[in-house]
Simulated scan of single mutants.
Amino acid sequence: MTVRTAVTAGRSMSLTDNDIIVDGVRLAYRDRGDGPPVVFLHGTPSYSYEWRDVVPHVEAAGYRTLTYDLLGYGASERPLDRDTSVTAQAALLVELLDELDLARVNLVAHDIGGAIGQRLAIDWPERVHRLLLIDTVSYDSWPSATWRQIIRDNLDDHAAMSAAEFERMLTRQLQMTVSDANRMRGEVLEAYLDPHRSPLGRASFFDHQVRHYDSAHTESLTARLGDLDLPVRILWGGRDQWQPVSYAERLTADIPGAELVVLPEAGHFVMEDDAAAVTREVLDFLAA
């Protein structure tokens, strides 16, 4: 049975506005509009906030949009005893789609959301109509060099980090996601930091996100990418410091019929560098 609850006080700057219980855990989500369904999957270190300048335009164009915070992210529950790897998140997404009676959807998937999208399209091909991958992790592309250092230095003793040390570390990482660091300052930076500004938020960041930065989840898909039989577009920031364009080119070669679009002036968070271009690509792909 689907259980929906009203928005609770203290919700972060998430794009979400409702909660739903799926497989015993609470997910913060937003389900709006009519027409063909489009599911937006965010990346890390992020949450549904990253889609704030894209999703409303897709809704206005006549689509039903589903946006949610992954388990352990944003305003969703942060359980102590659940696997929040991309493989587990894909299985949970299937259950979310079942709860919302969505048999087949279009996926727009960024970063680790792209790994979830790849897994869903390969293991549950009947559930995915089209797949748009944006600066996705793939193969052995992750974690990036700076994240590997953070894993070595902080993962096992992150509780020893002060709030100020944590915030400086995460700010440095977030400012690498855009081609112009000025785009990751002020209100925008505050929004990305917001879910992690409590002891629980900082612990959850390491336990639910960083601990699962593991390329085994995408390397296990490499030999199966050629089995994908659906329209696939790959959208990439030409200045991505975490996921080089060479991985986009490799994916394009390995996925039958995939097409590649590069935004030369954008970084890893392309929706922060050029939300209008991302929106155009999403709408063009959906209408193709």
Results as ranks from 00 to 15, higher is better:
111 D>H: 05
247 Y>V: 03
161 M>Y: 04
122 I>W: 03
68 Y>S: 08
25 V>M: 02
177 T>F: 06
32 R>I: 11
75 A>E: 13
78 R>M: 12
282 V>D: 03
187 E>A: 12
288 A>T: 11
2 T>I: 06
79 P>C: 11
63 Y>H: 15
197 R>C: 11
258 A>V: 09
129 H>Q: 14
41 L>V: 08
23 D>A: 13
82 R>D: 12
209 Q>P: 02
222 T>C: 01
230 L>M: 12
85 S>A: 09
66 L>Q: 03
169 M>A: 11
62 G>R: 13
234 I>F: 05
264 P>S: 07
118 Q>Y: 08
283 L>G: 01
61 A>E: 08
194 D>A: 15
67 T>D: 05
112 I>H: 05
161 M>G: 09
177 T>K: 08
158 H>C: 03
287 A>I: 06
107 L>D: 05
171 T>C: 07
80 L>R: 13
251 L>K: 10
227 D>K: 11
95 E>T: 12
82 R>C: 14
3 V>I: 14
50 E>C: 14
169 M>N: 11
271 M>W: 03
213 Y>V: 05
227 D>V: 00
147 W>E: 14
110 H>W: 12
250 R>W: 07
31 D>K: 00
279 T>Y: 06
248 A>F: 07
269 F>M: 14
267 G>I: 10
126 E>K: 03
12 S>H: 12
93 L>P: 06
121 A>I: 03
212 H>E: 15
140 D>Y: 07
15 L>I: 06
116 I>Y: 01
249 E>W: 03
129 H>L: 09
159 A>N: 04
282 V>K: 08
165 E>A: 15
249 E>H: 01
